[in-house]
Simulated scan of single mutants.
Amino acid sequence: MSALRQTDDVRASTARAYPAPAAPARAPRPRLKVVRAPGLARSRVPFVLTCIAILGGALLSALLLNTSMASIAFERYELSNDMGRLEQDRKDLVAELDQRSSPDRLAAAARELGMVEANGTGWLRLADGSVQGSPAPAGG
């Protein structure tokens, strides 16, 4: 028993030697507020409709762009064909002009119109008014 007494004495002496800590000051309780009921969960329909609208707009713009490019390519093809045809016509006309402007063809065309060849050629010198060469009247 004496051991028990000593432990009780030790406890009592330590209790007296160290004062008990003061109780912590309690924080004031927060005021309670009235809150609204939680709102209904938002519907995903507007988001889905917006996504579908964006996707539809993108597909429609791609379709319009593709159609526009195809029509431009067709127009370019048609213009290229027209240009090739016109280039061939120009070459044909240049060849015909070269053929008609040959000296033999010019002489034949002049005879058909009633023209005759000159017997001689002459030049008039403007500085002094003299005639050079041997001009002669055309024979008919």
Results as ranks from 00 to 15, higher is better:
L4W: 05
R44Y: 02
A17V: 01
A23P: 14
R42I: 01
D82M: 10
D9E: 12
A25D: 14
T50S: 13
S102V: 01
L55G: 15
A23S: 14
E112R: 09
S13K: 14
A12F: 04
A23T: 10
V116K: 13
E75M: 14
M69H: 07
S61W: 09
V34Y: 06
V94N: 09
R26K: 15
A70C: 03
P46A: 07
S68E: 03
P28F: 05
A58M: 13
A62V: 00
D9L: 12
D92R: 09
P103R: 14
G57W: 11
L86W: 03
A138N: 15
P21S: 09
E96Q: 14
L49I: 06
R100H: 04
A73V: 00
L126I: 05
A136W: 04
L4F: 04
A37P: 11
P135D: 09
L126S: 05
A17S: 05
D8W: 08
K91H: 00
L60S: 04
D104I: 05
A95D: 05
S134C: 03
R36S: 05
T121A: 14
G84Q: 12
G139W: 09
D9K: 09
A95Q: 10
A107R: 13
S68Q: 09
L106V: 15
C51Q: 15
A107L: 13
N119T: 00
C51Y: 07
R11Q: 06
R125I: 04
V34E: 11
L86R: 11
A127R: 11
C51P: 09
S61Q: 09
T7R: 12
L59D: 02
R29S: 13
L55H: 03
P137Q: 11
